[in-house]
Structures are given as C-alpha cells and as structure tokens.
C-alpha cells in the first residue's frame, strides 16, 4: 500500500512541477502533446492521474506528520484545476467554458469536503478560527478580509459595469435546421431523401458501405487505405469521383477551408468566424450529405432565419459550380476527413 502511495505521490509531484513550469512559461504546454484522435480521453486520464497523484501525496504527507489541512486541500485542488485549464490545455479554452468548469470544480470541491460531518468540520475550522479571532494572527486576518473582500467585490462590479469596446459575444447557430427541400440549377432536392449520385459501388449503384470502406482512416495522421488511392489513375467509380471532387476542392475551397480541411486555409484568419473545420467530429460528421450539398449550394447568403447572426462569407457555389461538381466536392470532403455522412435508416 505504502509503495503504491509513494508511486502516486511521485506522479503528483511530477505533475505539479510540470504544471508549475507551464504556468510560469518555463515549459511550453505542448511538451506533453495532446495526441489528435485521443485528446478528449487523454485529458480525462491526465486529470485522473493528478487525482491519484494528489491522493498519494496526501497520504505520504500524513505519514510524515505534515498532513495538509482539508481546507487547503480543497482550495488547492480548485486552484490546480483552474491553472490546468488555463495553462495546460491548448489551444486556449474560452473564458465562458473555463467559468463553467470552474463552477463545476467549486461545487465538486464543496461536495468532497462536506460529504461527511467530520470532513466538513475540518474544512470549516480555519474559517471559524478567523471569524472567532481568538489569536492575534486570526484577528489580523479578519481585519484584512474585512478590507479585502469589499475591495474585491467592488473591483469585480466595476469591471462588470465598465463599458467595453470589445466586439459583443454572439451565440451563433452553426447548424441551422435545413429546409425540407432546396432548388439548385432548376431541380428540387428533398434533403431527407436525396442521395449523392457519386457515392456508388463498382456496379454503379448507391452504396454507402462500399464508399465507407474506402475512406481514409481516422486517428493519427488520417492515412489512406491500401488500394484506395483516388490519385491512382487506374481507379474508377467512387475513387475517381473523389479525385475529381478533390480537384474542385483544391481549385475553389482550400483557400479558406485549408489543405487539411481543418478550416485553416490561406485566407481563413481574414474572416470572423474562420471557416468550418471539417475534421472536427461536430461538423460534417454530424450531418447528412444533403445538408452539406444545401450549404455549399446556397452559401452564407442562403442561411435561413434560424442561422442568426448569419456570420458566413461562404459564396453560394451554385453560381460557380454545377450540381455534379458540388456533389463530388462533398464526396471528397467525407473521404478526406474519414467521416461517414449521417443517415437516418
């Protein structure tokens, strides 16, 4: 048990040193890379490791007779969480999300320190000591808090009320509900039932299973599958259409959506918001192919009322591309990202 706890303590100390380094800018946060494809679970595992590390550390400190009071354990854990979110995770997390996580962290710490009466008493003790002010030090602290707390509250209030020149925050509806049908080049497409005419098997029939088997593999690097190279001139059918779609993409779309379809093209940062990142699992992976067809055809100007605040400079591509070209480029996007279009069957 002691050996395990020592190991835990070691992890805890190493983790704290690493985080300290990141906080003070000595170590870049990319030192321990967040690996694409595993990032969300990696993050949770990292925090779990910290919790194990802190348990070990607490145990060892107690064994050495230097137990950290519960009050400081609670406060310390919350500060750790805030520093971790601010300095460890990259790219930077917006304040609104850090505030949400910080609140959850605060509630969590409260639940932990007050889960039973004994712990709660231990946690409250330093607060009660300051309020009771039986010693000179506590009396001094009480006066300090008496001055500091109103100043802090006043500062926050002032900050909140002070007029700001920043652009306002917008709750943007990124995926507005599509219409039931859309008319492109004189033909009406029902979004719920239409299919990409180029998602076909060697027999020329619509076959999503076949195309799914030939897309790039997700995870690290997004590698092409063997014998599924669209740029191999011998390949016909689905892969040929992907190639054609790719050509259209690199002639028209990659300037904004990027070579890797991650929304970081040459012109991307001239726009606000920057263009859609198709490699994110929350964009095209969540949508029907017809949804993408509709958005590409109609562009930002064709966003429905619900798409408030209509922040998109995407051109209505129906004015520049044929219907076939639009379908092919959509096909390429799914192939390249390794995502499957949503279906409802």
């Amino acid at each position: 048990m002691k050996a395990l706890m020592s190991l835990g303590a070691l992890i805890g100390v190493a983790g704290l040193l690493l985080l300290g380094g990141m906080t003070f800018g000595v170590i870049p946060s990319t030192t321990v890379r967040l690996v694409e494809g595993y990032m969300p679970i990696q993050l949770l595992l990292e925090i779990a490791s910290y919790v194990i590390g802190f348990t070990g550390l607490s145990y060892m400190l107690s064994a050495m007779g230097m137990a950290l009071p519960r009050f400081w354990q609670g406060i310390g854990f919350w500060i750790f969480l805030m520093l971790y979110l601010k300095f460890r995770v990259y790219p930077p997390i917006p304040f609104s999300v850090r505030a949400m996580y910080g609140t959850v962290g605060l509630v969590t710490v409260f639940m932990w320190v007050s889960a039973n009466e004994e712990d709660w008493k231990k946690f409250k003790q330093p607060i009660m000591n300051v309020l009771d002010a039986q010693t000179g030090m506590n009396r001094l602290l009480r006066y300090v808090y008496l001055v500091l707390i109103p100043i802090l509250i006043g500062g926050f209030s002032f900050n909140a009320m002070m007029p700001k020149s920043e652009e306002p925050i917008e709750l943007r509806t990124v995926h507005p509900a599509p219409p039931a049908s859309t008319k492109v080049h004189g033909k009406t497409y029902t979004l719920q039932t239409s299919q990409n005419p180029y998602r076909v098997n060697p027999e020329g029939k619509y076959d999503q299973e076949y195309s799914n088997a030939n897309i790039v593999e997700q995870g690290m690097g997004r590698l092409m599958k063997p014998n599924a190279n669209p740029w191999d001139e011998k390949n016909q059918g689905y892969l040929k259409y992907v190639r054609e779609g790719g050509e259209i993409f690199f002639q028209n779309c990659h300037f904004c959506h990027g070579d890797n379809l991650n929304g970081r093209g040459l012109h991307a940062f001239a726009f606000n918001p920057i263009p859609a990142n198709f490699t994110d699992p929350g964009t095209i992976a969540q949508l029907q192919e017809t949804f993408i067809f509709w958005r590409v055809s109609k562009g930002g100007i064709g966003l429905p009322n619900e798409g408030f605040p209509w922040a998109s400079v995407m051109p209505p591509w129906e004015q520049h591309l044929t219907v076939d070209e639009i379908w092919k480029v959509v096909l390429f996007e799914y192939w390249h990202t390794g995502y499957y279009p949503r279906t409802w069957d």
């Binding site: 967040l34 990032m39 609104s96």
Partner: peptide, 25 residues
C-alpha cells in the same frame, strides 16, 4: 460551439475547440 469573444475565437483557431469540442457531440 462555445460562447467566446472574437479574440478568443481567433486564439482558438475555429468555432470548435479541437479537444473540448469532442465532448460537445
């Protein structure tokens, strides 16, 4: 899709956070 200022959006490099955005689905 997170609530953020335009400056935060640019710092993040897109509407979705590459790590936390995965929790959003």
């Amino acid at each position: 899709t997170m609530v953020m200022t335009p400056a935060e959006l640019k710092a993040m490099g897109g509407q979705q956070h590459p790590v936390l955005g995965n929790y959003g689905v």
